[in-house]
Write a protein that binds this DNA or RNA. Sequence first.
DNA 1: CTGAAAGCGCTTACAG
DNA 2: CTGAAAGCGCTTACAG
Lengths: 345, 345
Amino acid sequence: MTKKTNIAEIARLAGVSTATVSYVINDVGKVSEQTKKRIRDIMADLDYIPSINARSLSNGQTKLIGVTLPLIAPSDTTGTLLETNPFFAEYLGEIHKVISSYGYDILLSGIQVKGKYKNWIQSRGLDGIILLGSYPPDIYEEVKALNIPTVLTDVYESYANDFHSVNTDDAEGSYLATKHLITLGHKKIGFVGGSIKESPIHNNRYLGYGKAMLEANLKVNNDWIFETLTTFEGGIALAQQLMKDKIELTALVVDADIVALGIMKACQDSGRKIPDELSIVGFDDIQAASFTSPGLTTIRQYISKKGEIAANLIMKDILANARTTESKVVKSKLIVRGSTKLWNE
Amino acid sequence: MTKKTNIAEIARLAGVSTATVSYVINDVGKVSEQTKKRIRDIMADLDYIPSINARSLSNGQTKLIGVTLPLIAPSDTTGTLLETNPFFAEYLGEIHKVISSYGYDILLSGIQVKGKYKNWIQSRGLDGIILLGSYPPDIYEEVKALNIPTVLTDVYESYANDFHSVNTDDAEGSYLATKHLITLGHKKIGFVGGSIKESPIHNNRYLGYGKAMLEANLKVNNDWIFETLTTFEGGIALAQQLMKDKIELTALVVDADIVALGIMKACQDSGRKIPDELSIVGFDDIQAASFTSPGLTTIRQYISKKGEIAANLIMKDILANARTTESKVVKSKLIVRGSTKLWNE
DNA sequence: CTGAAAGCGCTTACAG
DNA sequence: CTGAAAGCGCTTACAG
C-alpha cells in the first residue's frame, strides 16, 4: 500500500507549485517548454496518473455518461434485457466507442423506480445520459428537471421534443417490407406486430404496412392483423394458431425479427416450407436472421449508426456546455434473403 | 443552474456540524434519534443527494467496478465484440445485477493497449476489476501490480492462480457432447474447434472429445479434427470444404455454437438433411441455438451463473478489504434438441 | 511565465 | 451525543 503519488509530490520534485503541474497536465496556461518538460519527465518517472475523481470535484465534470435500459416488466433486469435484446449490447458498444475517444466512460443502469434513477444521476454527477428504449412519462419529466444533456432513442411521444432524439424510419421500413412482398406478387399479406395501441414504434410499423397495401389497392383484412408479444415464443404461438386456423395468407410482414424467427421455426418444425408456402419479412436484422435456413428477409435497422449519432449528440452538448434538441432519423434498408419468394396465382 | 445543495447547507439548516450530517448519512456514530430525524427531514425537503464523487475522494472508495472486454484483433471494438459475442452482454447484465445491489456501478472498457488500461483503472480509482476473456500475459502482470480485487474468467493459464477465477468445465462439456453422439450409435465423429495450440479453452474442449472417443474405443482420426475461426463464417467455410471433400463423418462435435450454426446452415442450404445425414452438437447454448429448425443440440454454459459468481467474488474482497484468490468452476449441461439423431449402420 | 490560496463536497480521527 | 478542523487530490481565478 504505497501512497499514491499526487500532484503535490510532483510539484515538490519539480520545484514548482501544484498550479503549474496542473497547467501542464491540462496543457493550459503558458508554462515554459523547459519546466513543462521537466514536469513531464518527473510524472513519467513516477508513473503519475491524475485522479479523475479529484478533478471532477473541482471542475464539476465527471466524464461519465449514463446509459439506461428500460426495466418495464417486473421480471426485467439489466441481465435479461441485455441477453434477450441484442440491440442494447450493440448500442452500448457503439456509444462506448464514440465517447471513449473523448475520454468519457459509460455508466450502465436500468431504470425502474422513479426516484432511484434521479438519485443515481445526481449522486454520480453524470455529465449526460442516453435513454435506450421508452419509459413511463414521469421519468421524462424528472430527467428534464435535471437539466443535463440527454438523448432519447426510439421515442415518438411529444416529450421527445424536449431532448435529443434518434429514431429509425419505422413506417418507411415496413412500407418497404410490404412493397417487397407486393412486388413478388403476394396479395394476401398479413401483419404481425407488438401492441399498436401502446407502442408508437409498432404503430408506425403497422402504418407503413397499411400504406403499401392501400397504395397497391390491396385490402387490409382485419383478420390478417395479429398482435403478439415481441418474443420468439410469441412468434411460435402465433404460427401454431395460424396453422390451426388454416389462415389463407401467402405472406407475412412481421415487425420484429425475433417474432419472425419464431414463426418460421414453428412452421418448419411442422413441415411447412418457407418460403414456398409462406413468405416472411422481418424487421431489425438481428444477427440470428442470417443464421437460419433460409435466411430471413428483413428490414435492417442500423443500430450502430443510431448509437453513434446518440453518442455524438450528447458529446456535442457536453463539449459546448449547451442544451440543444435535435431529432435524427436513421434510414432502414430492405435485406433480401431466402424467406421471401415469388407468388404466382 | 441553481447551486446544488451540499452537506454544509444541510448542517446549517439543522443547526449542527457537517460531521453530524455525515454521520446520519452513513448511519455511523451515535447521533440522537431527535437530531437524526431533524436532519433526515431537511435532507428530504431539499432533495439532497450526497455526491459519491466527493465521498470517494475522502474515503478512497469509488464504488466502481471495471469490466473489460478483450480487444485482441486490431479490428475489435467494444461495439463489434458486444454485438458478435452474446456472452459479453450476458456477463455484463448479470454482474450489474449483483453489484448494483451493493450500490456499485460498472465501468465498461476494452483492453487493447497495455499502458492505457492501467491508466484507466488508476485514474478512475476503480475498486475492483473483472476481466472477461483472455488477454496477453503482460496484462496480467500489470493488473497484479495494481493490487486491487480482480477476477478472471475463462483463463486456464497459470497466472490465473494469482487472482479469482471463474471457468466452465470445458473438457467435461465436450466429453458429454461426444458421449451423447456415441450413445446414439455414431462412430465416425469429427471435432471442430478454435485454435487448440493457442487457446486453452479450445484445447480443453478438444481433450473432452478425445477422452470420450478413447473410452469408447473409437479411433480419433487426425483427418477428422478441424480448426476454424470461431465465427459463423468459419462454420460455413468448413462445411463447404467438408461437402466438397466428401468426408465420411456421421457426426460433429463443434466447440462453439456460432460455428455449429454456420455448418448447419451451409449444409441445409446445400440440401443436406440435419440430423438425418449429419448430427451436430454445439457448445455454449447461445440464444440462436434454439431459433433454427432443427434446434441445435448443445452444451449449455451458464454464463449468468459465471457472471454472478464473478461479481460475488469481487464484492466479497472489496467489502472485506481482502485480497483472496478462489477458483470456481461452473458445470455445463447437455441440451438435446433436434440436430442429433440415432445412427444405425 | 509562475505561485499562493481558496474551493469542490465529503469523511474521519480526535477532543470534549 | 456533537463539533472543529484537517485532509482527500485536484482546478482556477487572481496577482505579480
